[in-house]
Design a protein around this nucleic acid. Structure first.
Length: 568
RNA sequence: GGCCCCGUGGUCAAGAGGUUAAGACAUCGCCCUUUCACGGCGGAAUCGGGAGUUCAAUUCUCCCCGGGGUCACCA
């Protein structure tokens, strides 16, 4: 037995399995040629971040389009940062946007043959791999930390900064690197806690090449820092878990954010030490935003940007297709031309090519999302909008939900306005939360409960409004078709001195009180309170004779009141 | 500061030695129109800077500058 083997036994007498045992336990997946196995590995520290969704969608697409597998693994090795209950909620969100079968769903619900998909349950595996490294002298126990906290008590970092050399545990600062069996044993016997560190073989000048699926060849100095692999608690760090898990779970391509690029040398070293083949890597760009206060570009943060949390978009009522489309568009610029060419194709038919993904940080543009969302909603028919809005409203707006359910047909007819019967549908709704306010005049419950604030045009005189409405109410009939309806509006307008021909009006505006636009606006405002609405004739038909009548009369009365008070 | 990534209009970006430097969103103007939205037409707006290589550089090389990431017993 070598000293290394003796140390390994001393540290982990109960680990009997070998690395090979585990490797044999999880044989390669049976998948068609070219199938990619990808994963999302969130840590349960909060809720799904929009940047994670970005990673998630790319991973999912790459797997699906190659007939491979996309799975979810919970990286919960950091108990300190863990937020209770966050894991299952994250899984639910991932599943909402990118349905998956294999992996973690809940602490008592996992699917797949390569589990556990919860890292805290994999401790024995990591320790086995660590023991293997220790027994071969490629890793070693380090006692440099103080007993009760995770702060390295060695103050070598300050010294290194002063010296202007890279910070880290290496070289002469790596005091535990060459401890003998006897020294290790003495420390252990003294009850000292220890971490396991990799014994790096780079010297800071030796180079290595990483071939990234997106970024091409990148030259790094070979890793020369003895990073911690196993914490003093016995739990693994990301680097160790990544190498072990992605090997055992047979991940073919690791797609992760650019923030991981700088740890690639460490990961390669680990694979090399284990004699394992590293997966393919793709390091994506990062999602950014402009800081409202400083004007600087920065990473999207949960602290400052409420929309960093994916739930925000759902609460706002953005359809998930819109969110997916926009994020995919950010990930891959070829998406938008594809969507233009295939407006009705299922999003799962899109083939995402890794070569033309963006390399530089992408600004998250809410305005563009809104546009994408409007287009997505514009493709929906009224019944679909109805069920979508209802589903949303049940959770976020019970008043709306009540109105929708009270009279389903009525609600659908509202959503059908300027939409189902038009070649080019309206594009004015981006999210469900806008619906209630936008169509508030369509429900008396909402309309009557609000303070009336007639939005007539400034220059229109009250007495003229009154006159027009009084005349119009006499000819109005709920049974009129669109043409008849408009003819009546024109006749009334003409009688009151408005010009019904826009060209004529533009030539001689002084001859008239206003144009047919002015007259129409008066009726529109009398009925809806506002100047901008879908087709007025349709609105009046849906509202019905009684309501239209009541609203016009109410308006006339209100105007009389204004006039009485000397307002013109 | 060391190492690494990135740099085309306000935003996402196509272009890979020779182009009037695409397209989408936003913005401005006009048209259509009973309002708004839609739609149509048009405008303004971009190759970070400097050296090289070349007959020719947005495109290749180098330097600089700028932005970002990372240097934890976090992921």
């Amino acid at each position: 037995m070598t000293d290394y083997e003796k140390i390994a036994e001393l540290l982990y007498p109960n680990i009997k399995k070998t690395v090979n045992d585990y490797i044999n336990m999880y044989p390669a997946r049976k998948l068609p040629d070219g199938a990619e196995v990808t994963r999302l590995a969130p840590s349960p520290t909060g809720y799904l971040h929009i940047g994670q969704l970005f990673q998630c969608l790319v991973n999912k697409r790459i797997a699906d389009q190659s007939k491979g597998v996309f799975y979810v693994r919970l990286e919960d090795t950091d108990q300190k940062r863990e937020v209770a209950g966050a894991g299952p909620i994250m899984a639910e969100m991932i599943n909402y946007f990118a349905p998956y079968t294999e992996g973690f769903h809940d602490y008592n619900k996992q699917n797949g043959d390569y589990g556990s998909y919860i890292q805290s349950e994999r401790q024995a595996i990591y320790l086995c791999f660590a023991k293997d490294l220790v027994s071969r002298g490629l890793a070693y126990p380090c006692f440099c930390s103080s007993d009760d906290d995770d702060d390295e008590s060695c103050d070598y970092r300050e010294e290194q900064k002063k010296l202007g050399v890279p910070t880290g545990y290496y070289g002469k600062w790596a005091k535990c690197r060459n401890l003998t069996y006897e020294e290790v044993k003495a420390n252990i016997d003294a009850g000292k806690k220890y971490t396991i560190r990799i014994k790096a073989n780079g010297n800071g000048t030796e180079k290595m090449v990483h071939k990234d699926l997106l970024r091409g060849s990148i030259v790094f100095p070979k890793n020369f820092v003895d990073y911690v692999l196993i914490k003093s608690t016995g739990l693994a760090l990301y680097h160790m878990a990544h190498v072990v898990d992605d090997t055992l779970m047979h991940t073919s391509t690791v797609i992760r954010g650019e923030e991981w690029l700088s740890s690639v040398p460490l990961h390669y070293q680990l694979f090399e030490y284990f004699g394992l083949k590293a997966p393919k890597y793709l390091h994506t760009n990062l999602l950014m935003t402009t800081d409202a206060n400083t004007g600087n570009t920065r990473k999207i943060s949960k602290r400052y940007d409420p929309w960093a949390d994916c739930r925000w978009f759902i609460e706002q009522g953005f359809p998930k297709e819109a969110i997916i489309e926009y994020v995919l568009n950010l990930a891959n610029s070829a998406f938008e031309p594809w969507r233009t060419a295939n407006p009705n194709a299922d999003i799962n038919e899109y083939i995402l090519k890794t070569g033309n993904m963006g390399k530089s940080g992408a600004m998250f543009d809410m305005v563009k999302l809104v546009d994408v969302s409007k287009n997505v909603i514009a493709k929906m028919k009224a019944p679909e909008i109805y069920s979508r809005v209802l589903l949303w409203a049940k959770k976020y707006d019970i008043t709306l939900a009540y109105l929708l359910e009270r009279d389903k047909e009525y609600a659908i007819s509202i959503f059908a306005m300027d939409r189902d019967n038009k070649p080019r549908p309206r594009k004015d709704t981006a999210k469900w939360s806008e619906i209630k306010e936008f169509y508030s005049y369509m429900w008396d419950d909402l309309y009557l409960s609000k303070e009336r604030n007639y939005d007539f045009e400034e220059e229109t005189k009250l007495k003229d409004i009154k006159e027009l409405l009084e005349r119009y109410i006499l000819v109005y009939s709920a049974s009129d078709d669109n043409q008849t309806w408009f003819n009546k509006v024109k006749e009334t307008a003409s009688l009151c001195g408005y010009c019904t021909d826009m060209k004529e009006y533009k030539l001689n505006p002084e001859k008239y009180k206003g144009s047919i636009r002015t007259a129409s606006t008066i009726i529109r405002v009398a009925i809806t309170g506002i100047r901008e609405t879908p087709d007025l004739c349709e609105i009046m038909k849906i509202l019905g004779e009684k309501v239209v009548h009541a609203r016009i009369v109410e308006t006339i009365l209100a105007i009389e009141e204004f006039i009485k008070n000397g307002i013109e």
